[in-house]
Amino acid sequence: MKRPDQRECHREPELVEAIIDGRWPEGCDETLRQHVGDCAVCAEVAEIAPLLNGEHTAACHEAGPPPVGAVWWRLEARARREAMLRATRPILWTQGLAAACVVGLALGVLPLTLEVLGDWDAWLYQSAVLPEVSGVVTSWFAHLDHENIQLALIGCVSVALLIPLALYLALSEE
């Protein structure tokens, strides 16, 4: 007798197995067919399961999974890349910290540098330590006024600081 509120039936697994094996309904014994006629749960299962099973078969035909060799190669390459990243992460952190220290130090000594640079062009004119170099430099600097010399020196210092930073950034990408 059918009971609509019935939640499960002990013959449901048997019925599902028959449907999935393609034995339902002709290949099943009469008792199961009769039971499905009497049981609300099994009647519902017999209505739904063949549809879903058919859809499963259709979907499996439709599926075009990539070749296993290609998948394995891709997954392995990804795992290696991630393992390498994990292994080199502390080094990258250390490099980043070092670069930050250099920049911080440079910013810290910048006011002092600028103060020294204020008198440096005068020192350069009077320098007797390297007369030849001094002569060439002073003749070149003679074409520049005081402000331009300061700008040129600030530029040189900035480049000297930025080149290592740029090199670090370029190499850390590798």
């Binding site: 859809e55 979907a59 499996c60 599926a63």
Partner: peptide, 10 residues
Amino acid sequence: ARPLWAYLSR
């Protein structure tokens, strides 16, 4: 692979 694709697809 095929049953898994079918499952996710549906």
